[in-house]
């Protein structure tokens, strides 16, 4: 599903050059639930962002769903993200001025899905995370766990083949974290969605199919 070869990422500023990723080779199979662990600053987010076509590698190639990605700023990449990928972030990134339903609808809006269908599918996605009764609320009225569940609904509403989650439980206490983890596991099992998750929590990583460890930009396991 995702194939990464000889991937390197170097950040250059005027004064320093940081190698965030160094020659990574990684294959993620369809339906796999992969977790990535490693100390802070080792390049986990960078790797995930490149897989999500949010960032551009300095070297190497990325192939997703049989398609090799070349231009990261093009319309077709935006459309590709819209259709194939769903994102979950550590700090939720819900839009504070939109209510829950409108937040969840967002990917469908850019997919030019009609109003009625948008509404219906968003409600369905909210139902699957147990928050349909909160769809008229605004993000500020929800707890952290609820926000992350809304973010999951937003990530899955477009039925993407791949979900990329960057420390989805990082801002949550263990009870809420477990809840979120349960939803992801169910999604992986029931919908056969490929999931790549960055985490600091070994017990969360233990529930996934495979674990990749990074250290200082290099893959060590």
């Amino acid at each position: 599903m995702i194939s990464i070869q000889n991937l390197s990422k170097v950040y250059r500023t005027k004064t320093i050059e940081t190698t965030a990723l160094n020659n990574i080779n990684l294959d993620v199979k369809k339906g796999e639930f992969l977790s990535i662990m490693g100390p802070s600053g080792c390049g986990k987010s960078t790797l995930l962002n490149i897989m999500g076509l949010l960032d551009e590698p300095s070297k190497g190639s990325v192939e997703i769903d049989g398609q090799s990605i070349s231009n990261y700023n093009s319309k077709s990449t935006a459309r590709f993200r819209n259709q194939k990928l769903g994102f979950i972030f550590q700090s939720f990134h819900l839009i504070p001025d939109l209510n829950i339903l409108d937040n969840v609808e967002l990917p469908l809006l850019y997919a030019k899905v009609g109003r009625k269908e948008r509404r219906q599918r968003s409600e369905q996605a909210l139902e699957s995370v147990g928050l349909k009764n909160r769809m008229r609320h605004f993000p500020s009225q929800l707890s952290g766990g609820q926000k992350q569940r809304v973010a999951i609904a937003r990530a899955i509403v477009g039925k993407p083949a791949i979900i990329l989650a960057d420390e989805p439980t990082g801002n949550l206490d263990s009870a809420m974290g477990n809840e979120v983890m349960e939803i992801l596991l169910r999604l992986n099992k029931v919908m056969d969605t490929t999931i790549v998750m960055v985490t600091h929590d070994a017990s969360m990583a233990g529930k996934t199919n495979r674990l990749v460890r990074l250290y200082d930009g290099t893959q060590i396991q």
Partner: peptide
């Protein structure tokens, strides 16, 4: 977020 989810 909008761009990540496909906004041009």
């Amino acid at each position: 977020v909008r761009k990540a989810f496909g906004a041009l």
